[in-house]
Amino acid sequence: MLGRGFRDIAFRGKGIVKGSFCGEALVTREPISFLGGVDPSTGAVVERGHELMGKILARRALILPHGKGSTVGSYVLYSLAKRGLAPKAIVTVKTDLMILTGCAISGIPLLSEVPREVLDVVVCGDVVEIDAYRGILRVLSKQE
């Protein structure tokens, strides 16, 4: 974390797929599998028992520890992105090949190797700014 002032919570990571986004955050402590775990026709999380079960990924920044499951998940991410159903940006604590590949072939900005605390500090509904050129995530406004 760079600073703790209310308006100035920021995390540094590595911009893996360049790009930027400003908008609502969707945060989970559980890894996601895009193959089987996300409905390719709606972009909703459908893995039974998952924290984000039923949540829509579209239009948000998805913040998670890392991906899991088959590398075919990369193709699912691509397919979602083409229909406007994929997250607008993805932030991970650890890099994994499935999410990296999916983001690269779909042009989704990916910020990776962000400190794990991000999962405690940022909550669903916070407004964040993700700059994957410089490798920074900034929290612009907190959910009350």
Binding site: P40, V72, Y75, Y78, S79
Partner: peptide
């Protein structure tokens, strides 16, 4: 690899077609 329709499904087919 990733040639079988069983493994890559419609999403993979779509990517390769594009």
């Amino acid at each position: 690899s990733g040639v079988s329709y069983k493994s890559i499904g419609d999403a993979g087919l779509e990517y390769l077609k594009d």
